[in-house]
């Protein structure tokens, strides 16, 4: 069978899960910086590498490739794992 699928065909960016994250967090988080717990680099959520053609969605650090966030939607619930994120940084309005 001829297949020519590269990593690039499978990899999107964090904007691919923007709608899902907005539903869960109640806000658009694509511009929110998140620090990778593995390498320490800070990137906007929308800039993370997203793998969504899988049993769940996996967001990876664009620098080191470590898993930062995993999202699984089952028939009853949505689980988000964020062990790979050291912190989010939210701007304070007027700050």
């Amino acid at each position: 069978m001829a297949t020519d699928v590269t990593t690039h065909d499978l990899m999107l960016d964090g904007n691919a899960v923007a709608g899902l994250l907005a539903d869960l967090f109640g806000a658009d988080v694509t511009v929110v910086p998140a620090k990778c717990a593995t390498c320490g680099e800070v990137n906007a959520m929308g800039a993370l590498h997203a793998y969504v053609r899988a049993p769940g969605s996996v967001l990876r650090c664009p620098i080191c490739g470590a898993v930062m966030m995993r999202i699984v939607q089952t028939d009853r619930a949505t689980r988000i794992e964020m062990r790979g994120i050291a912190y989010f940084r939210f701007e304070r309005s007027g700050g």
């Binding site: 297949t3 699928v5 590269t6 065909d9 793998y51 053609r53 996996v58 898993v67």
Partner: peptide, 10 residues
């Protein structure tokens, strides 16, 4: 088809 699913880079 033989769908390709992946949680990360190949």
């Amino acid at each position: 088809d033989f769908p390709v699913l992946s949680a990360g880079p190949t």
